[in-house]
C-alpha cells in the first residue's frame, strides 16, 4: 500500500530504527576508535606488542581454537544424531544443547570449579592428585569456552539437515557408498555453509568469552599464564594501566570481520 500516509510512517520507522542502532552501537564503537586513534600509532603498537599482550593473544588463540575444534566435532555429530536417528531422550538432548545460550557465564565458571577444582572439586581432587590440573589452568579455560559456544554449530547445522532430508544419503547408500564416503560426499557439501556460519559465530564467541574464563582462570595475573585478551582488557582497565583501548580495538576488529564474513555467508533469504 503506497498511500502518502503509509510512506510518511514508513520513513518515521526507518529513522527511529537507524537512530536507535546508531546511538546504541555505532556511536560507542566510534568513540573508542577515536580515542585509540588519538593516542597514536606508537601507543597502539606498544600496547599490543608487549610481552603480556602477545602472551594473552597467544592464549586466546589456543583456548578459542581448541574450543572451536571440539565444538565442530561435537556439533556436527549431535546434529546428525538429532536429525537422522530416533532414540529415547532425544528431546531432552535437544533442550540441553540450548542451555548454554541463556546460562550466566559466572554460573558456568562456578559449575566447572565445583566439579574440576583442584581443592574441593568432585573430580578435581582425584585428578589433582594424579597430577592433572584443569581449573586455574588452560584446560579449564577451554572447557568454559566450549560450554558457552556449545549450541552455535548444532543450531546452524540442524535446520539444514532437516530441510535436506534423508533421501540423498539413502540414494548414495544404494549406490554403494560407505558411511564415511556418504558423509564426505553428500552430507558435508550439504551443510558446509551452515557449518561455516556456525564456525565463524563460534570463533567470535570463543575469542570474546570473559566471565566464565575469568572464574576458572583463577586471576593469576602478571605471570600471563592464564590471561586471555579479554581478561587483559579487564585488568588494564581495573588497574588503570594503559593499553586497554588498543587491545579492545583489535578484538573489535576481529568481531566486525567475523560479522562481515557471516553476513556474506548467510543465505540471501532476507532480500525482500
Amino acid at each position: 500500500m503506497a498511500s502518502r500516509v503509509g510512506r510518511r510512517s514508513r520513513n518515521g520507522l526507518r529513522v527511529v530504527a537507524v537512530l536507535y542502532v546508531t546511538a546504541l552501537v555505532l556511536v560507542p564503537l566510534g568513540v573508542i576508535t577515536w580515542r585509540t586513534v588519538r593516542q597514536g600509532g606508537h601507543a597502539f603498537w606498544s600496547a599490543i606488542s608487549s610481552a603480556q599482550a602477545v602472551e594473552a593473544f597467544r592464549l586466546t588463540a589456543i583456548v578459542a581454537g581448541s574450543a572451536v575444534v571440539i565444538n565442530i566435532v561435537f556439533g556436527v555429530g549431535v546434529a546428525l544424531l538429532l536429525t537422522r536417528y530416533h532414540f529415547p531422550g532425544k528431546r531432552v538432548l535437544s533442550v540441553l544443547i540450548d542451555v548454554p545460550i541463556s546460562v550466566s557465564p559466572i554460573v558456568v565458571g562456578l559449575a566447572l570449579v565445583l566439579v574440576y577444582g583442584p581443592n574441593n572439586g568432585w573430580f578435581g581432587l582425584p585428578l589433582h592428585n594424579a597430577g592433572v590440573d584443569i581449573i586455574y589452568a588452560v584446560p579449564g579455560m577451554i572447557l568454559a569456552t566450549t560450554f558457552v559456544a556449545l549450541p552455535l554449530v548444532v543450531r546452524e547445522v540442524v535446520p539444514v539437515l532437516e530441510d535436506e532430508g534423508f533421501e540423498q544419503e539413502q540414494a548414495a547408500r544404494v549406490l554403494g557408498a560407505g558411511a564415511i564416503q556418504r558423509f564426505r560426499r553428500i552430507t558435508l557439501p550439504t551443510i558446509k555453509w551452515a557449518l561455516a556460519y556456525g564456525v565463524v559465530l563460534s570463533i567470535a564467541r570463543s575469542i570474546g568469552e570473559f566471565g566464565a574464563v575469568k572464574v576458572v582462570s583463577g586471576n593469576i595475573s602478571g605471570s600471563g599464564q592464564t590471561q586471555t585478551a579479554t581478561l587483559l582488557v579487564d585488568e588494564r582497565v581495573e588497574q588503570l594501566e594503559p593499553g586497554a583501548y588498543q587491545v579492545s580495538l583489535v578484538l573489535i576488529a576481529v568481531a566486525v570481520i567475523a560479522i562481515i564474513v557471516v553476513s556474506v555467508i548467510r543465505p540471501k533469504e532476507n532480500v525482500s
Binding site: F210, T230, A244, S248, V256, I259
Partner: peptide, 17 residues
C-alpha cells in the same frame, strides 16, 4: 551487519566502550 556486532563483540569490550 551492525545489528549482529553485539553478538560477536567480547562483553568486556562492550563494557569498556
Amino acid at each position: 551487519v551492525v545489528i549482529d556486532i553485539p553478538f560477536a563483540l567480547p562483553t568486556i569490550v562492550a563494557g569498556l566502550v
